[in-house]
Amino acid sequence: MTYVVSESCIKCKYTDCVDVCPVDCFREGPNFLVIDPDECIDCTLCVAECPAEAIFAEDDLPADQVQFTAINAELAKKWPTIVARKDALPDADDWAKVKGKLDKLER
């Protein structure tokens, strides 16, 4: 099992999770982070650090978020590794609880 970044991260991109990851499995896109499933060691440290509550164990993803398993795997192959915390996007707090943001994902 791996951990998956879900829709709540879109247009937020808080990077608190990156600081605690012992294996640098996060990848950074323009307005979203993903977890590389081949690198994740299932340590759970990132889950509690995410202000948007966007990270789930693959088996615990809400039914409407299951597609994010494939999205994380796909984008992890394309996006660069992020290893240090950065500022969230400027309007992250406004977007954190918004639902239905998949169309806002910048690939």
Results as ranks from 00 to 15, higher is better:
residue 1 M to G: 10
residue 3 Y to M: 03
residue 3 Y to S: 01
residue 5 V to N: 04
residue 6 S to V: 00
residue 7 E to H: 06
residue 7 E to A: 07
residue 8 S to H: 06
residue 9 C to H: 01
residue 11 K to G: 08
residue 18 V to Y: 04
residue 19 D to S: 15
residue 19 D to L: 08
residue 20 V to Y: 05
residue 20 V to D: 05
residue 21 C to M: 00
residue 22 P to A: 10
residue 23 V to Q: 06
residue 26 F to N: 06
residue 26 F to P: 07
residue 27 R to T: 06
residue 27 R to L: 03
residue 29 G to K: 02
residue 31 N to H: 09
residue 31 N to G: 08
residue 36 D to E: 11
residue 36 D to P: 12
residue 37 P to M: 11
residue 37 P to E: 09
residue 38 D to P: 01
residue 39 E to I: 15
residue 39 E to Q: 14
residue 39 E to W: 13
residue 42 D to T: 15
residue 43 C to N: 04
residue 44 T to G: 04
residue 44 T to A: 10
residue 44 T to W: 12
residue 46 C to I: 01
residue 48 A to K: 14
residue 48 A to V: 08
residue 50 C to H: 03
residue 51 P to E: 12
residue 52 A to S: 13
residue 52 A to T: 03
residue 55 I to S: 01
residue 56 F to P: 00
residue 58 E to C: 01
residue 62 P to F: 02
residue 64 D to G: 00
residue 67 Q to T: 03
residue 68 F to R: 02
residue 69 T to K: 11
residue 71 I to L: 04
residue 71 I to P: 06
residue 73 A to V: 02
residue 74 E to D: 15
residue 74 E to G: 14
residue 76 A to D: 10
residue 78 K to Y: 07
residue 78 K to F: 03
residue 79 W to H: 13
residue 79 W to N: 14
residue 80 P to N: 08
residue 80 P to M: 11
residue 83 V to R: 15
residue 83 V to I: 13
residue 84 A to C: 02
residue 84 A to N: 09
residue 86 K to P: 02
residue 87 D to C: 08
residue 89 L to C: 09
residue 91 D to P: 08
residue 92 A to Y: 11
residue 93 D to G: 12
residue 94 D to W: 05
residue 98 V to A: 08
residue 98 V to I: 15
residue 99 K to T: 14
residue 100 G to Y: 05
residue 100 G to C: 08
residue 100 G to F: 07
residue 101 K to C: 02
residue 103 D to T: 12
residue 104 K to V: 01
residue 106 E to H: 12
residue 107 R to Y: 12
